[in-house]
Design a protein around this nucleic acid. Sequence first.
DNA 1: TACATTGAGTTCCAAATCGGAACCCTCACC
DNA 2: GGTGAGGGTTCCGATTTGGAACTCAATGTA
Lengths: 156, 156
Amino acid sequence: MRWQDIDQHPCSVARTLAIIGDNWTLLVLRDCFLGVRRFDQFQQRLGVTRHVLSDRLRKLLDGGIVEKVAYQQRPLREEYRLTEKGRALYPVIVHLAQWGDKYLPHPLGAPVTRIHTHCGGVLEATLQCSHCGEAVEARDIHVEENPHWRGKVLPR
Amino acid sequence: MRWQDIDQHPCSVARTLAIIGDNWTLLVLRDCFLGVRRFDQFQQRLGVTRHVLSDRLRKLLDGGIVEKVAYQQRPLREEYRLTEKGRALYPVIVHLAQWGDKYLPHPLGAPVTRIHTHCGGVLEATLQCSHCGEAVEARDIHVEENPHWRGKVLPR
DNA sequence: TACATTGAGTTCCAAATCGGAACCCTCACC
DNA sequence: GGTGAGGGTTCCGATTTGGAACTCAATGTA
């Protein structure tokens, strides 16, 4: 199976990664959340080739994660902005960053700190059960398969 | 810049993605969290070529995200198991799955439901501020740069 | 003894993708 | 008329994939 066919999977993770799982794409998204919006800015910050950047941005556009917004006419110049659908990926980026801060620490410390502007506190995300409010770990979760894919989603 | 050099970045997201950001790797991790442990099982479920799977598992091993555990001697057979460091990536997978369930829904519904065994409720993860307990969105966060990289992490 | 099977890879080759650099297009400015 | 900015596309050689076959050690089976 080719990588570009994984959007055919019944799995939500697979379909999500079909849009954002390519090399570079999650870094593009990280930059989006830091306020980067222009092609050349992405290109210089990431060091990715223009060709690949162009391809990744197109996939994000097609996936509805970013949209092009004109910031000037004549000459027409457009920038890439996260849509609401795109902003909903923020928890993914935050958890990736927190995991890196904890398990791959840099000698000079974490590059950025995220401050919750409402309360002024430092954001430390945890996985919490919205039902009981408890912190959740992988071992506390039981996965139940949708009967429509009996045997096709879970192993064995 | 080549993709494999991104582990040199000061950014925690980049260093994290240097290990798990390759095509297929996050799908391997998804399967790990569903209980898949054996080479052939990964290979059949993902449809990835054995060559690529071998490479991705090696990177996960090198990154300390999985470890090899013998499950029988003669012939020696080993399986891949998540380490504590690896299990700490669970929030990333959960948020990817939830995002897919919401924004790329499948006509037959979500493939799996995650039940919090402690309370029996369905897990619905939200990004919450551990300081004030409020739900957090991207727009509520102010990013503060570590002075050591003044100008090298944030745009402009 | 001979043969097939299992698990976990490695090797080989053609096809696709990447990295680097150059080029293009539109418009504005000097 | 030349230069520059922004946002790409084109080209080419190098790397990585996808697909399939092969290896190796040990075990089951005839």
